[in-house]
Every structure is written in structure tokens, then in C-alpha cells.
Design a protein around this nucleic acid. Sequence first.
DNA 1: CTGCAGGCCGGCG
DNA 2: CGCCGGCCTGCA
Length: 290
Amino acid sequence: MFIESEDKNLVIKEVDSFNDKQTFECGQCFRWQRQEDNSYIGVVNDRVTRIKSNNDTLVLYDTSLDDFEKVWRAYLDLDRDYSLIKSNLAENDEVMKEAIGYGQGIHILQQDLWETIISFIISANNRIPQIKKVIYNISEMFGKKIIWNGKEYYTFPKPEELVVGTEDDFAKCGSGFRAKYIKAASQMIHEGVINLNAVREMSFDESSQELMKIPGVGIKVASCALLYGGQKYNAFPVDVWIKRIMHYFYNMDMNNVNKTYEFAYDKFGEFGGFAQQYLFYYAREKQIRV
DNA sequence: CTGCAGGCCGGCG
DNA sequence: CGCCGGCCTGCA
């Protein structure tokens, strides 16, 4: 991988399999918006960028090299050996080989743990467009305004910024019955009842137990938050799509989620999170139904 | 108008 | 314990 600076843009060449659509639309993030030219604009921390991938080349528009090194390089997970992960998962598993073929360019973004906790609380029994809308509204109401290329964007509010919000405020953002969970999560994390720095150091089992002390956080929400925001790569979030595909591919019982979690943990181990992403993307692309 | 979405909670057997 | 109905809200 090497980086060229052209005008105000950065051109990253010989990237290890990064595909923008697959990465931004595999269900892990809610703040990337597809543009008319199929590039994606996203907000991370207090930075904004526009990204377009083309085979092994990645362009970040209106982005400085300094920001790339400080934010985007790690966030986009550009230094990981995805070829190694894929060959490990595909070994002796025709099903995974097939799934990987559909999402070869998926990267697991290294997001902020606090943001993923709130985002996936909002995701419960909800639809993706609505989840995105609620997160945008919350950012607009409680985050900081950023001007980028003459347009307004909003940071995702930090715990101290969100904790001042009332349940009613969150409901006005469209979060529905999850408003009380957002309120509780903000308080518990801001007051240190849940210490995210400590959570980051824990194993997946310990950290998920810790996060599930937050109302509105069950095993699925905890797994998502920890995989996407806590770099716990053995997490294997089981949602409806994963239930379907695990039934379809591995003959798992649709209504025995615990067994699916056990099976995935044993089978995929430290690569569970990556396996989940390939399976999820495949299931959605192929619209796998029971 | 019903049904339902990337789950979770609480009450019941 | 495991099971199951209900849940904000918006959209098909």
C-alpha cells in the first residue's frame, strides 16, 4: 500500500481488498451516505471525508495526509492482512468460500465504542433507514457542527454531550421506545458505572456481560458494539439474517440462537466477526429466506 | 388497514 | 429457566 497526494485528494494504491459499497453497506455503520456518483461521505469523530474505491485503489477526496494518518488509516482498517483472514476462513469450508466471494472487499471499520453502543441500541427491532435517521437527528441535536466543503455535518455527541438530553428529546429524534435506553446508557457511561476504557481491555465474554448491564443491550447489541467499536473480533452477532444463513448453510436451528453462538464461536474462533460479515453480506445480497 | 423491521424486556408456566 | 407477547414509529 502506498499513498499519493493529488491536488486536495489522497490516492491510496495497492490496498488489500477494500470495497466501499461492501464495507459501508454490510450493516456495521450508519453514518455513510451514498452519493450520486456512488462515492460515500461519512463523519468520523470530528472529521468528514468522501471515499470511492476502485479495485485496489482508494480515493479520499478533500482529505489531508495528516487526517489520513490520524483518523482514516486506522478507521478503515487498512493495515490488516485480509487475504490471510479469508484464506483461513475458506479453508475446508466451501460455504464460506462462496460467501467470501460476494464480499471480498469488506473491511471491519474500527469505530468508536460509545457510538456503536448507542447506534445498536437504536437498531433493535428497527429498519436501517430509520436507524440512520435517528442517529442523524441525535447528532444534529447534540453533536457539534462541522463545515466541510461548504456543507454542514454533525459529530456524534460524546457521553457528556448526550447525557444532558431527556428521554423526550430522544423520542423527538424518532427513537421510540428506545429513548429510555439511550438515556440510561448515557448516564451509566458518563457517570462511570460502565467504564468503556476498562471494557476495551476485557475479553469478549467479560465485556459483553458488562455492556448487557445497560438496559436495551442484549447479546446481539453487545456483540455488534464490541465487534465494530471494540475490536473484539471473535464476536459473532446473530441477527435475523445470520439466523437464516446459518440455518441455510450449516443447518442450525432458527430458534436456538444460543446454539448458533456456540457453533460460530467454536468454528470461527478469533475470525468470528469477519465470518459474520461475509455471511451477512451474502445473505442480504442473495435475499436468503427460510 | 394490517403487518413488520438487524431485539429486548418482563411476566408467566 | 425457556417461552412468548408487546413495543415506538414509519412504511409497504
